[in-house]
């Protein structure tokens, strides 16, 4: 092989190689890493990359799920089947437990996404996790656009955007003091389209609701919400059966579906490439609450 062109990585190979490098750095330098795993597509891709990074050895850390109690049942089933298949340890931090014993109170609007921060930080402190892998991508949102790959959190779990470490070359600085931890984002440089192209290339299995299916939905704030145990139509909201899919998978009460004919992964790649609306704009009520919603939650220690 002397042709220079054959020695250039494609964009997906480049992104994969960068993510594997990041994951291996954490595996080598930290005592107690954990990977945030919800069964959502970004966390599924991240776990897939972790498996590849350490192959043929097993992944040397477990996964943590912050369960709002309002998750789609099929996503929880997918989560359990995945960790079972890979033989990986799963820890669950339950928002429901916090509400049941009074440590957290249900919000008036019913959404539980902002309530995840406390159980997440308690789980990190309780298990003394020093590195926490998150599936956040910089293309998602403007607070994330300024996030580091290795992002230091203080003993309160807070992100201080004005006091971030400069990140130079591919030399990641994971040093931290006792009580502090580092959030690590191996998919920082991936876009939604990259993620889907990679899912297609690697034939990665996802929960079925990422693909078009018929479902009972009702419209609220311009979003299609699924009818389920934790999300019921209010007066004046009518339930219809429509062909939909999910672009993100989170809390049932605030994650909207989009109308779609994309039944296969190839269909989804085509749809995402042609879409005219951002992932969060289309599907996340919690990020619409205010322009700086994500910024505020991140500072408090959110994902």
């Amino acid at each position: 092989m002397t042709d220079t062109d054959t020695r250039r990585l494609t964009q997906l190979q480049w992104l994969e190689s960068e993510a594997i490098h990041i994951i291996r750095e954490v595996g080598a330098e930290f005592e107690r890493p954990v990977l945030l795993f919800s069964g959502g597509k970004d966390s599924v891709v991240m776990l897939h990359l972790a498996v590849k990074a350490f192959w043929p050895a097993p992944v040397p850390f477990g996964v943590l799920h912050v369960d709002t109690g309002h998750n789609f049942p099929e996503v929880l089933a997918f989560r359990d089947a995945t960790v079972e298949r890979l033989g990986i340890r799963l820890e669950v931090a339950s928002v429901q437990d916090y509400i049941d014993d009074g440590r957290l109170r249900e919000r008036a609007d019913g959404t539980r996404n902002p309530l995840q921060t406390q159980p997440l930080l308690d789980a990190i402190a309780g298990h003394r996790f020093d590195a926490v892998f998150g599936g956040g991508r910089r293309d998602e949102e403007k607070a994330r656009a300024k996030e580091r790959v290795f992002s230091l959190r203080d003993e309160f779990g807070q992100w201080d955007p004005r006091n971030q470490r400069p990140e130079l070359w591919n030399l990641y600085n994971g040093r931290h003091r006792p009580g502090e931890h580092v959030r690590v984002f191996p998919l920082s440089n991936w876009t939604e389209l990259d993620v889907w192209q990679y899912i297609a290339q690697e034939k990665i299995e996802l929960p079925g609701l990422y693909y078009a299916h018929e479902r009972e939905v009702f419209e609220r704030d311009g979003m299609l919400l699924a009818v389920g145990e934790h999300s019921q139509p209010r007066d004046g909201e009518t339930v219809e059966r429509r062909q939909v899919r999910y672009r993100t998978v989170g809390d049932m009460s605030c994650t909207g579906a989009v109308e779609s004919d994309a039944v296969t992964v190839a269909d989804v790649v085509t749809e995402v490439a042609a879409t005219r609306v951002t992932e969060r704009g289309a599907t996340r009520a919690d990020d619409r609450m205010s322009e700086a919603a994500m910024e505020d939650r991140k500072k408090e220690g959110y994902f």
Partner: peptide, 18 residues
């Protein structure tokens, strides 16, 4: 940028775009 930047009229940091 971020609200904290607009409030202070500064740009804090490198932002990544795609």
């Amino acid at each position: 940028g971020l609200r904290s930047e607009r409030e202070q009229g500064i740009t804090i940091d490198v932002a990544y775009r795609y």
